[in-house]
Design a protein around this nucleic acid. Structure first.
Lengths: 124, 124, 124, 124
DNA sequence: GTGGTCTAGACCACT
DNA sequence: GTGGTCTAGACCACA
C-alpha cells in the first residue's frame, strides 16, 4: 500500500489518509485481515504528527474499515470492503451535490456548470 | 429580488449573499441605482448575523457592484452589470476544481467522477 | 442542564461529558432543538480543555445526538431522544457483560458475583 | 490446567493469566510443587507475547503463588493455596466497583443497573 | 468569539 | 514500542 500525503492540499491530512486507505481496500491493494502500520510508524513515514494518524485510524475504526486490537496493532476489518466502497462514492456524490446545489442557487445554469466541469476534467 | 440562504451549505453565508446579488444584477432582476435593503433589515429577513451581511456588502462595494451612500443606504452601482458577470464563472471553476482535485487525490477516477456528475445534474 | 465532571474518575473526561449529555436528553432535562453551550464556554465552566469538550461534541454529533451548525453553535438533534436512550443502556449492558464474562472465565461463581454486586450497590 | 485467553476482553492479558492460574490452584487443578509450562511454551500455546507471560509469572512469584527455580523452570509455590484465595474476590469487588461508579456518574440509576445485571446473569 | 486542524509534550497501562 | 488521554499553543476562515 502506497500512501501519498499532500500537506498543501485543502483536504485535511486525516481525511486524505482515510480516503486513501479506503481506496486501497476497494482496489484490493490491501486485504481484509492484513495488518496496518502502527500509528507512530506511519506518522514517521509520512512525516506528519502521531495524533493526525491516530485520528484517521480512530475514524476508520468507527466506520469498521479497520479494527484496532489494542496494543497489538490495527488490521483491516473483515467487512472493510463493504464499508469502504459505498463510502467513497457516497462522499463524491454528496460533495458534488452540495457544490452544484450552491451553483444553481446562485443562478448558474446547467450548461455553464457542464462547461466548467468539462474544462477541469480535460486539463488534468 | 429574492435571496435564499442555505445555512447548511458548504459555501460560506457571505459568499452566498454576494453571488445571489451579483446574479440578480446580471439577470436584470435589480437595476443599477436601485436601493438595497439595509444591512440590519436584510440580516433580519434572512435570520443571519448583521456582520455577515455587512461583510458581503463591503466586498460587493470593493468590487463596485454596490455603492454605499452613508446614511442613505446602499445602492446598485452604475457599472454593476460589468462588474458582476465574470466573477461567477470564476467562482464555479475555482470551487469545482477544488473538489475534483480532492476526489482525484483520494483515488477516485475520472470516469467515476463523470458518472456521479451525470447522476446529479440529471436528477435536478 | 447540570454537568459534573470528576477529574479523578477512571472514565475519560470526554466520555463523562457524552454520557451526561445523553442522560440529560433522556431525562428530558434538555429538549431537541435546544442550544448547547459553545465548546469554549463549556470548557471554561468545567475548567477543562477546549479540545476535550470539542472531542465530546464531535462524537455526539456523529451519533446524531447533537447537531453542529457551524459557527452558530451546536444544538440537540431532533432525533436525539432515540439516539441517546438506547446507547446508554447498551453501554451498561455491554460493559457489565464484559466484566462478568471475565469473572466467570476466571472461575468466579455466579453467587460470588451476586454477593459482591450486592455489597457494592448497598454501600452507595 | 486449561487456560483460556480472551484477546478482546477488557481485562489485560497478564491479569487474565494470573487469575486463571490462581483459580486453578484454588480449585486443586494444580498442586503445590507442580511444574508450570515455560514462559515461551505458554506464550506459544496461547499465541500471546513472551513478555506478557513473563509479567504474569513475575507478579505471581511476587505473591508467592509460584516459585521460579532458575533454569529448571517455575513451580507452584508450597503456600500457593493460601496466597491465591483472597485476591480473586478483591479483584471482583474492585472491578465491579469501578464500573458501577462509572454508571452512576453517568446518571444510571441503581434499579437500571440491577435490571441489566439480572439480565446478564440469567442468560449465562 | 467560534469551530476546525495541526503540532507537540507528557503521562499511563499494556505488549 | 504502542495506543489512549489530557493539555496547550498556534493558525485559519467564518460569524
Amino acid at each position: 500500500m502506497q500512501i501519498n500525503i499532500d500537506i498543501e492540499a485543502a483536504t485535511p491530512l486525516f481525511t486524505q489518509l482515510i480516503n486513501q486507505i479506503k481506496q486501497a481496500v476497494v482496489n484490493g491493494d490491501i486485504e481484509p485481515g492484513a495488518p496496518l502500520p502502527s500509528i507512530r510508524q506511519l506518522a514517521n513515514d509520512l512525516e506528519i504528527n502521531n495524533k493526525t494518524v491516530a485520528k484517521a485510524y480512530q475514524l476508520l475504526e468507527r466506520d469498521s474499515v479497520i479494527q484496532s486490537k489494542g496494543y497489538r496493532g490495527s488490521f483491516i476489518h473483515p467487512d472493510a470492503l463493504t464499508n469502504s466502497t459505498i463510502d467513497l462514492n457516497q462522499w463524491v456524490e454528496k460533495t458534488l451535490t452540495k457544490v452544484i446545489t450552491d451553483f444553481k442557487q446562485a443562478g448558474v445554469t446547467d450548461s455553464e456548470i457542464r462547461i466548467a466541469f468539462g474544462h477541469i476534467l480535460k486539463n488534468k
